[in-house]
Design a protein around this nucleic acid. Sequence first.
DNA 1: GTTATTGCAAACCATTTGCAAGTGT
DNA 2: ACACTTGCAAATGGTTTGCAATAAC
Lengths: 165, 165
Amino acid sequence: MLNFESLEIAVSPTEKFREYLATKGMRLTQERELIVAEVFSSHEHFDADQLVERMKLQKTGRRVSRSTVYRTLGWLEDAGLLRKVARTNDRDVFEHDYGYPQHDHFICKSCGELFEFQNDDIAEILEKLADEINFRMNEHRLEVYGICDECSRPPQRRHKKLDLI
Amino acid sequence: MLNFESLEIAVSPTEKFREYLATKGMRLTQERELIVAEVFSSHEHFDADQLVERMKLQKTGRRVSRSTVYRTLGWLEDAGLLRKVARTNDRDVFEHDYGYPQHDHFICKSCGELFEFQNDDIAEILEKLADEINFRMNEHRLEVYGICDECSRPPQRRHKKLDLI
DNA sequence: GTTATTGCAAACCATTTGCAAGTGT
DNA sequence: ACACTTGCAAATGGTTTGCAATAAC
């Protein structure tokens, strides 16, 4: 029996989304396809508003409304293509959750920058702890707050993205 | 030289809040005192709305407005007495962050229940990782999602608090 | 043709804020 | 008198939703 699990990256995000939509009797419309394309054109974290802006910049004549962006983000999350990673400036921040390894974030309280890191030991510890209370662990979100290298340096040019993000 | 760090639990939450307020030229009013008392009367997690309700139930004639509750929550957070632990049903969820050991949570996606756990190894691993990128770590938030023991049992009576919280 | 989808504008809702009246010193 | 606070009502701002027009099959 073939192990399709290991093949998942072989399917493009768009294709995976089409499959998800199919299970809901929904269609992969032009708008949805444009959104998936834009979302997966970069690995950067983003929020709904930023995505709306990026959609406006697309050369395609097709305009995508804010409502459609919001609705589609929800489905992309359901489909396992995106996940919310944090909340910055009162906005949900998304990142790719497909074809992208599990990881967590250091978040600079000064500039708001996110730094990804990956560590298997933590997941292992969690498995063990979950087991003790018979908790069926699915996933986790780990945000580590502090001050990043750049921001902890003497007064000089530094990040200042807190209200830009 | 005395180590005051280790004495912090000796000061009551109210007293600590008074000290914080003093540094800001602010007063510990009756309203604020009632709120701190209510907040620290139980170790349960809560959101602003729940606290507003609890304030209404207090036998004191003194009524505390929603605005005051919100404002005070912010200062309690600043003062290090409370911290936001999660977001449930679009609301910020708070818990004690004073005289209470660092811990994290298992969150049941079925019933919404939070289960606390405590593990030093994780913090240790984080310290090491933070060090590698020269990140000055202050604190972290770890939420582990999954299904709790009770909810993973066969169809029977079970938690159903998702929209009650 | 029928059913899903879009964009718009309005609704929602937790949280914040302006401000006049109130309170403590 | 003075400076900080409160409660109210209104504003904010991200996100959601109702609905008539539109597009996909």
